[in-house]
Design a protein around this nucleic acid. Sequence first.
DNA 1: AGATTTCCTATCGAATTACTAGGGAAGTGT
DNA 2: ACACTTCCCTAGTAATTCGATAGGAAATCT
Lengths: 170, 170
Amino acid sequence: MTTGPAGSAGATVMDNLAMRISARADYAVRAALELAAAGDDTSLKAEAIAEAQGIPHKFLEGILGDLRRGGLVVSQRGGKGGYRLARPADSIPIADVIRVADGPLVSVRGVRPPDLSYTGPAESLLPLWIAVRANVRKILGEVTLAHVAAAKLPDDVLSLADDPEAWTNP
Amino acid sequence: MTTGPAGSAGATVMDNLAMRISARADYAVRAALELAAAGDDTSLKAEAIAEAQGIPHKFLEGILGDLRRGGLVVSQRGGKGGYRLARPADSIPIADVIRVADGPLVSVRGVRPPDLSYTGPAESLLPLWIAVRANVRKILGEVTLAHVAAAKLPDDVLSLADDPEAWTNP
DNA sequence: AGATTTCCTATCGAATTACTAGGGAAGTGT
DNA sequence: ACACTTCCCTAGTAATTCGATAGGAAATCT
């Protein structure tokens, strides 16, 4: 499995992180992509998705439950059961998947930017966080499951990722 | 998440967060802004900064220690002691402050994007995370302490924050 | 009925976060 | 020299969160 053992020996150091995509969000997106690739009328079993993407299957079940409650997938129990997307893949932005699985996209100290208040020289911090959030939203709201599943990201996103400097460490 | 379907009004839920600025990072930036506003040759005591920004002062001391070890501030002990910026405020991007206080800016499941590998329909996920990261870096690397302390954000950042839609909830 | 697969609840350990406590080291003013 | 101030360092801790697991009840198909 190329994805790195989900829970065990992955990263050497667990750093503090200013911005992180959680395992939940990552798994949720990958599961949704698997469903997008399967097509609108084929339904996949949780176990199949888990195996394909190297996700602990009981953990995945919980995540798929969230996606269902969030209205992104529909499920069917029983012998021929499984999950499939509730809407066409090109109408589901990645942002939706992350939000449903993980809550708001961006927050500061557990508070959403518009609810913060700063004083003194920090007053302009709020517009800054808002700008960052707007930017993240723009990207993740523009890119859909269909884009990623087809490996055809929009040009403006691709050009961001093409900058070699974007791939360096710090 | 386990919160009722979509938007059940005002309940404050402490969700998981896809992207968060931690208290450490937020405090670090605000402290640095106080120092930027004080000027290059005035030094402020930890206690004064703590009071001005409403930060627990013992907690802040630890953060200031990180900033010092990261070379962003210099300190002086004793009666006339305190902290001041090690460099001019317009040469310190917000990104530097956050990184020093909190580690790498962006990561996925505790792993930095370039170290991930995805399979199947999730293959294009990596360039997407990279694009998001590049974008966040671009903003936080461009905006300096001087910008924020003077309440004069660069135009391209301001225009992002000016979009009224950027301030809405989800 | 019987097999299958989702769905629900409960729990767990380990890590992380935000913060507190206490004391030692370095510097200043009298 | 002496007291006083302020930074500096090490530990510790309570609460929360994260990732993951277990067992069984409910629904659906053949």
